[in-house]
Amino acid sequence: MDERVGDVRLLGPADVRRLAEELGVRPTKKLGQNFVHDPNTVRRIVAGANLTADDVALEIGPGLGSLTLALLDACRAVVAVEIDPVLASRLERTAAEQAPGLAERLTVLPADGMRVTAADFPQPPTALVANLPYNVSVPVVLHLLAELPSLRHGLVMVQSEVADRLAARPGSKVYGVPSVKAAWYADVRRAGPVPRAVFWPIPNVDSALVSFVRRDAPSTVDREAVFSLVDAAFAQRRKTLRAALAGWAGSAALAERYLVAAGVDPSTRGEQLDVADFARIAQARTSG
C-alpha cells in the first residue's frame, strides 16, 4: 500500500499501534476516540474536502495525526485542536518525523473543540476537516459554525445516523433540530459511507462523511430566537405547531397568530418546515 501523499508519509496500521503504545494510549469511549489507520481513507477525506493552497484547515480531535499529516500537504496551514494533553503533546513531533518539510504549517491547540472561539486561532480557519468524536459531533459542528464565521466549507466524519440527521431535508423521518440549525449556516450534504475496518478500534456503529458549504443566513432575525423556536417545535414533534408552540408563544392562540402571520398552516408539524419558514415565524413573534 502506498502510504505517501506528496512529501508526507502517512500513518499505516503499524504506525498507529506503535504511537499508541509509545504514549500508553488506549482509545476511550468517553472521548469518542476511534483512530483512522487507513491511508486511502485519509486521502479520500482530503480530496473530498476540496481544499485550496490558500485554505487554513481546522481539525478537531486529530488523535495520533493520521488525517493531520495528509492535510499538511493540501493547504496553507493546519490548526489541530486536541483535548487529550498526551496526544496534543506528541502531534508536532509526529509531523516533523513524517512530513519534515511541511511541519511548520501545523499549529496544535490543546483545547476543547466545544469551547474554542475565534480569538484562540492565530489565523482564521477557512475549512473544517475532521474525524469528529462521535459523542459530541453535532454540538461541535454547530458551535464552530457559530463561533467561526471564517469557516467557509468543510468535510467531517461522523456516525452514519448523525450524518443523515445533519443532511436531512423537510419531510424526512430523521429531519429535526440538528437539520434545521445546520441549515441556518450552510448547505449540508451526505458525502458517502466510511467502512468500519478503517478504524482502530473497530467501532460498533457505521460512519459517514458530511460536507458543508457556508451560505448567508436565511434571515436577519436573531439566530437564537429562531433556534429556541426550533427547539420548541421539535420537543413535541407529533403535535401540530399550534399546540407544540403554545408554550413558546404564550398560548395556542398566540402561536396560531404568529404562524398565520408567517404564512404557515397552524395544523402543520415542525418536520414539514425549512429553516426559512422557522425564521419567518420567529420574525412574526418579534414584530408582535
Rank of each mutant, 00 (worst) to 15 (best):
V108A: 05
A252P: 09
P62A: 06
R4M: 03
K181L: 15
A119H: 14
L58V: 03
P266F: 02
A163E: 11
D15N: 06
A99K: 01
G176A: 07
E161V: 09
R242C: 07
L132H: 09
E97N: 07
K173S: 15
G176W: 04
A246Y: 06
T286N: 10
S211V: 14
F121A: 11
A182C: 15
A208E: 13
D231W: 11
G6M: 00
N34I: 03
D7F: 04
V177L: 10
D84Y: 05
V8L: 00
R189Q: 13
A252S: 15
R196W: 00
S137R: 13
G113A: 12
V194I: 13
N34S: 09
V108M: 08
V205P: 02
S267I: 00
V174C: 14
D274K: 00
E3Q: 13
A70D: 02
A163M: 12
K181S: 13
R9L: 09
A217N: 10
L241V: 01
A244C: 10
T94H: 06
L109I: 13
S160G: 14
V230E: 03
F278V: 02
R190G: 14
V198K: 08
R152H: 12
A252C: 06
Y258K: 01
L106Q: 03
R26A: 11
V86A: 14
V86G: 12
F212L: 13
V86T: 14
P149S: 11
L51F: 05
S207Y: 04
D120A: 15
F234I: 08
A282D: 01
R242L: 10
D265C: 03
R90V: 13
L245Q: 09
L166E: 03
G176T: 03
P170T: 01
V116H: 08
P193M: 10
A182G: 15
G24I: 07
S160F: 14
N50Q: 14
A96M: 11
P170C: 05
A217T: 12
L106I: 00
I281W: 00
L11F: 06
R215A: 12
A255D: 02
G263W: 02
A53M: 04
S267W: 02
S179G: 10
N135Y: 15
L144G: 06
G192Y: 08
T220H: 12
V81F: 05
A74C: 12
A70N: 01
D187Q: 14
T52E: 07
